Simulated assay, not measured.
Amino acid sequence: MSVVNVSLQVIPVVAEERIYPVVDKVIEYIQASGVKYEVGPMETTMEGELDKLLDIVKMAQEICVEQGAARVVSIVKIDYKAEGVTMNEKTYKYRK
Rank of each mutant, 00 (worst) to 15 (best):
G84L: 04
K81T: 12
I27V: 15
T44E: 01
K36D: 07
Y29S: 06
I75Q: 12
T86P: 05
V35C: 09
S33P: 04
E38W: 14
G84V: 01
N88Q: 13
P41M: 13
M42C: 09
I75A: 08
S33W: 02
Q31G: 01
K36L: 10
Y29H: 15
I27G: 05
A82V: 11
E28A: 13
K81F: 00
G34D: 03
V72H: 12
M87P: 05
D55P: 00
V65R: 15
L54A: 03
D55E: 15
K81Q: 13
I30D: 07
A82C: 01
V35S: 03
L50N: 08
V39K: 14
T44P: 01
E49L: 09
I63F: 05
I27N: 11
V65M: 13
A32V: 06
K52P: 00
V57F: 00
V39C: 04
V39N: 09
Y29R: 13
S74G: 07
Y37K: 05
G34N: 05
V72T: 14
G84D: 08
Y37C: 02
V85W: 06
V76T: 15
G40S: 13
V65N: 07
M46S: 08
E28T: 09
A60L: 04
M59R: 15
I78C: 03
G68A: 01
